[in-house]
Amino acid sequence: MLKEFRPAITSFLILTAVTGIAYPLAVTGIAQALMPDQANGSLIVKDGKAVGSELIGQSFSDPKYFWGRPSATGPMPDNASASSGSNLGPTNPALIDAVKGRVQALHDADPGNTAPVPVDLVTASGSGLDPQISPAAAAYQIGRVARLRGMQPAALQQLIAQYTEQRQFGMLGEPRVNVLQLNLALDAVHR
């Protein structure tokens, strides 16, 4: 019974040191030396101040900005220190009510728009931090943003095209638009 105890404890300690200390430190060292931007959160710096991360969604509710995916994090949306989905089941009345409310909010902000609403614009993302929306969801909002900023829809279409990321290697994932980067670009061309 006790014969296996010595190898158990010694191998546990040594392998812990290898996999729990040496390995993460090696990855950190190489990552910080070769890829410091990515390793530190792909932060976007404007005028010397970090204004967000390329990879982390930010909440936009002002109608003159493009809105991102709804977020179910608490207590505030897009809380990047407590990621979470809504976990609402498909037949839960609370889910139907939430989607109804979001569709209503979009209609209220843009009464003339009668197009069907792209699904990703009214459903909460998995992480609550989704930085992107589908090109369809961006196109849906062009009319509102153009009107409130007094811009030409064509100019916005061009901006969206510029910030649309195609499938990786033309194949993997889905086409998508980074909402924070799009809004930053929007502010840059038109305040």
Binding site: V99, P118, T123, A136
Partner: peptide, 24 residues
């Protein structure tokens, strides 16, 4: 509710509750 869930070249469509845009 007037929500468009059809897959097309500009959106993945489908049941997107709890899913991320980049994965569809």
């Amino acid at each position: 509710l007037g929500v468009d869930q059809t897959a097309s070249i500009s959106q993945s469509g489908g049941n997107m509750e709890g899913k991320e845009t980049r994965f569809g």
